[in-house]
């Protein structure tokens, strides 16, 4: 049990997908203008990350491994991700229109989020078993959500503050992201 906790906090804080591994940077910069949209994106991504972790594990261990087709990993994982995203969208549209409206365009956008494919491949590289894969996927999602919401609330404040002209807009956002990344580096010593 404590292994799972370690894995969880390790992934959320120490090996954060966005700020330490630098995966999924495009939604991190792209949808962080408003807290509301950031929250929507976080939920969608966490959901898809968790599902993808489970499914890609199944595909890898029960189809690709016995058939000795490991070189097809990337291709089949992309297939899995696309299907999971599409399927989630359909089910959500049917079962929870409110959530569907909230997530809106972000759901299909996740298909091309590199954090998802990164997660599927990292799960294989680190040799996680089934439960570990799911925990890893979920905690990657939580870590993504954490930094995305933090960053978007900072950007909302930045939009209202008096930023010197050369730093206005994208450049101050980049600097903020860099500082956040530095701050997250400070967690490195947290778990050995």
């Amino acid at each position: 049990m404590s292994d799972y906790f370690l894995l969880f906090f390790g992934t959320v804080l120490v090996n954060n997908f966005v700020l330490v591994k630098f995966l999924g940077l495009c939604p991190f910069m792209g949808v962080s203008n408003k807290v509301e949209t950031a929250v929507g994106m976080s939920f969608a991504t966490t959901f898809v990350l968790t599902l993808t972790a489970a499914l890609s594990y199944i595909v890898n261990n029960f189809i690709l491994l016995p058939l000795d087709l490991l070189y097809l990993q990337t291709l089949s994982f992309i297939l899995v991700i696309a299907v999971v995203v599409q399927f989630t969208e359909m089910v959500m549209h049917k079962t929870s229109p409110t959530l569907y409206r909230l997530l809106g365009i972000f759901l299909p956008l996740i298909t091309t989020n590199c954090a998802i494919l990164g997660l599927a491949l990292l799960n294989i590289n680190e040799g996680h078993d089934f439960v570990e894969s799911i925990v890893y996927g979920f905690s990657a999602g939580v870590g993504f959500s954490l930094v995305l919401v933090l960053f978007s609330s900072m950007r909302e404040r930045l939009a209202a503050s008096d930023v010197p002209l050369p730093f206005k807009g994208a450049s101050i956002a980049m600097i903020t992201a860099g500082l956040m990344s530095l701050a997250f580096m400070g967690f490195t010593g947290l778990i050995k």
């Binding site: 595909v59 189809i63 690709l64 058939l67 087709l69 097809l72 291709l75 089949s76 297939l79 899995v80 299907v83 599409q86 399927f87 359909m90 089910v91 549209h93 049917k94 079962t95 229109p97």
Partner: peptide
């Protein structure tokens, strides 16, 4: 063959769910 079967499987799943979960 494997990729084809995998794709056909997923495709039929999506096709089925698009009918099943039609809004």
């Amino acid at each position: 063959l494997t990729l084809g079967i995998l794709g056909a499987l997923f495709g039929s799943l999506l096709g089925y769910s698009s009918i099943r979960f039609k809004v």
